[in-house]
Design a protein around this nucleic acid. Sequence first.
DNA 1: TTGCTCCTCACGTCACGTGAGGTGGC
DNA 2: TTGCTCCTCACGTCACGTGAGGTGGC
Lengths: 293, 293
Amino acid sequence: MSYNNLDDEYLSITEFADYVGITPDSLRHYDNKGIFTPAKYGTEFRNKYRYYAPAQIMTVKMIRVLTEIGVSLDTIKKLAKDRNPEKIIQLFSKHRYRLADEIRFLQGVHSVISTYTELLYEAMSITESEITVLEMPDRRILLGDKTDFSGQTGYVKEFVRFCDAPHKPKLNLSYPIGGYFESMDEFLNEPSLPTRFFSLDPKGHERREAGLYLVGYTRGYYGDTGVLPGQMAAFAKKNKLIFDGPVYNIFLVDEISETDHERYLLQVSASVKDRRLIPRRLFRNNSNKADKF
Amino acid sequence: MSYNNLDDEYLSITEFADYVGITPDSLRHYDNKGIFTPAKYGTEFRNKYRYYAPAQIMTVKMIRVLTEIGVSLDTIKKLAKDRNPEKIIQLFSKHRYRLADEIRFLQGVHSVISTYTELLYEAMSITESEITVLEMPDRRILLGDKTDFSGQTGYVKEFVRFCDAPHKPKLNLSYPIGGYFESMDEFLNEPSLPTRFFSLDPKGHERREAGLYLVGYTRGYYGDTGVLPGQMAAFAKKNKLIFDGPVYNIFLVDEISETDHERYLLQVSASVKDRRLIPRRLFRNNSNKADKF
DNA sequence: TTGCTCCTCACGTCACGTGAGGTGGC
DNA sequence: TTGCTCCTCACGTCACGTGAGGTGGC
């Protein structure tokens, strides 16, 4: 027995289209271009109705795979007339690497919007005027070289230098960029001139370590930290907190999500000493009476 | 110090384009559509040269991210004029799931062309006329229900039934489909009417198990196994091989990669008894004097 | 007969890409 | 001055999508 009875039953154009998950328009388009024609036309009378055979399913599926990996319909048309295993191997391996790259790229895009979404949710959950001690999970970042704002080199030059620097895992500028200060003293000294820049790229090799941070928020344009540094210092002094690590500045809300410059939202988090050394009442999750300004 | 000196240095359109990894054409397009305009025009004289500020890098990067996740330029234009964290969260989460689906889809496409490439490489490495015993690795497959060719139900009906069946992991018709026989006897009895169909989908829940197989090849259209079944039976008899499991038919070369029907290449692999029971000389990797027809 | 599907043909869409022909910048 | 970059404007591209207006199938 051979497969000669493959053309037992025909499907109308929409039936067939539904079957393979494309539109009838696409099938007509393929027919018009001479890339893929129905098994037969018309019925008894010679009309122009297109009828497709089930055996043609695999062929259309492959056409879809080819268009999906970026092969043009013209190329597919040529292949339809003359193809062989060598050609197909060539075509497949040529596009396989591009496809793998594209997948990695889209995974990056997914990661970027996840990161922004996280920051935005955080922005919506906070109480702006409140300064609190929070336990923060660790977060991978990509840390830049030390900045140098001495002499005539402006902020922009250093920012551009960060963007241009040959970081080991290449810097993806789509991720949010924050400011890093070696210590609270450095932050208090020049709150808008970070010691380093960092990117929130989760593929970064450095990390903002898990632990306790004194966290505060302020609204305003880039560089405008307002009275926040002073408030944080006062809060620390009053509550006998000891800063023991770096300070991270992250814009939870910036030009990506806000039109109004004055509504940008900066989060400052400064590493503080171990939990055992800090009075319980300062923890937000232990009480609602956390100190407010 | 504020970020007012962000516009210290300007970049020409191509410098800026190179920086963010897009074409100058795209930037002009964004400008013409009023989506993203250069920081300033012209220099001393009021010409139409576009000049971009480094601080604009993040903005274009986000425009690229948005277009990449499928947001139209019209929507981006509206967002450029009026956006807020709530809107952006909405937009991101709406497209995040679609993007994740697309990534999974493209991974499927990659897997499909990898599978075909594998088969094609195998096709190019074999000696057509040779029947050999091979140790084959296990391979995941998606096995269909038992076919029923009794009565008037034709081959196509059963094939379509396989394509339509509600397999647990939904059948992806882009993968090659093969024929499965419960035993060598079944294969010899009706070599072109498989007991079941199977798909080479690596996400399938069944598998062609690793082990020893008697493997043969034949060229011809679907269903045309020619003299191969007889040859394999004779070979087994002569060498006292014992069949102890299913037979798998896979087209290494079919309409996907060949124009000429007669050049389609079928691989038949039949499970045979354990290595210890088979004479060493039959193994291809132990000797070049493998039995030939 | 009725409603449904199918047909063709011309034009639209979307985000740019591609010259042609010209001018400004260094 | 020369070669380089930039400009505008109109049209092209690619794989369909979208009506309009009409006919065949059951």
